[in-house]
């Protein structure tokens, strides 16, 4: 595998839930090595479905990839056996944090050491406590009693224990106060820079996601409508208006449907 090939690649995939509901229709994207890629879009656009397809969690929710290819480090991703994928270095920090509430902070990290099964690396909790000193203070505490922000830190901390090459982050800002969101995104950017972990970041909060991402994709109803380097997206008038909430004119003058139509064609 050459080093400049993308670490994650999605080629034209379609995903169907319960053999009836089509969630993704011909979606393609790629994540270059060592970069943060943001995947933005409104509710129900299929962002989380994309991540679940990548981490092979779809069968648990009665979903299936019916067409297209997913590649992780040049190797195809097959649905089923998600734990094997984690052990190969693809870690999914799921939406809503999904920490183990009855376990202590440290036991949550211990659970993540199963990701190292069959690998030479030794588990290292210190790296987690270095990025998130607050977790160190509460390492014996029951995870369910942590604040929302601390739970998100723990969810990312579990990913650090697993020593992945790619982290899929699903809405890390969900339900957190703006100040905490800023803090956590700062740490995510540091992890990317210092550990060299590539990231695919799904967010509704486009402003904060684009503040740390190198590249962005915007999706609507199951496929990508715009993509480009972050700087270009930030200057794009449609992105500014629909996702960053910057209005240029009076609403009376805007014909949304025309511009949307351009994307969908």
């Amino acid at each position: 595998m050459s080093d400049d090939a993308p670490i994650l690649e999605i080629n034209n995939i379609e995903v169907v839930y319960a053999k009836a509901i089509q969630a993704l229709r011909g979606l393609s994207l790629s994540v270059p090595r060592g970069k943060i890629v943001a995947l933005l879009g409104s509710n129900g656009a299929g962002k989380s479905t994309t991540l679940k397809a990548l981490s092979a969690l779809l069968p648990m929710e009665n979903g299936a990839v019916t067409d297209g290819r997913l590649l992780f480090d040049g190797q195809p991703i097959l649905q089923g056996d998600p734990h094997k994928l984690v052990r190969r270095g693809l870690f999914h920090v799921m939406e809503g944090r999904r920490i183990f509430a009855d376990l202590t902070v440290e036991e949550n990290l211990t659970a993540a050491t199963f990701a190292l099964t069959g690998r030479a690396e030794k588990p290292d909790f210190d790296i987690v406590y270095r990025y998130f000193p607050r977790l160190a203070e509460r390492r014996k505490g029951i995870a369910g009693y942590l604040s929302g922000g601390e739970q998100q830190m723990l969810a990312i901390g579990r990913a650090l224990v697993a020593k992945p090459r790619v982290i899929l982050l699903d809405e890390p800002s969900l339900g957190l106060a703006p100040k905490l969101v800023e803090e956590i995104f700062g740490i995510i950017a540091r992890i990317n820079a210092e550990e060299g972990v590539s990231m695919l970041l799904v967010e509704q909060n486009a402003a904060v996601a684009l503040s740390i991402a190198h590249h962005g994709y915007i999706m609507e109803t199951g496929k990508i409508v715009i993509d480009g380097p972050t700087e270009r997206l930030l200057k794009d008038r449609d992105v500014q208006e629909f996702y960053l909430g910057l209005a240029h004119k009076s609403y009376r003058d805007i014909k949304h449907y025309k511009r949307r139509k351009r994307w969908l064609s």
């Binding site: 799921m94 509430a101 199963f114 990701a115």
Partner: peptide
């Protein structure tokens, strides 16, 4: 506690 989360951290559920 959470099967999907368990497999997402590498546990063979």
């Amino acid at each position: 506690t959470d099967r999907a989360a368990a497999s997402s951290v590498g546990i063979n559920v």
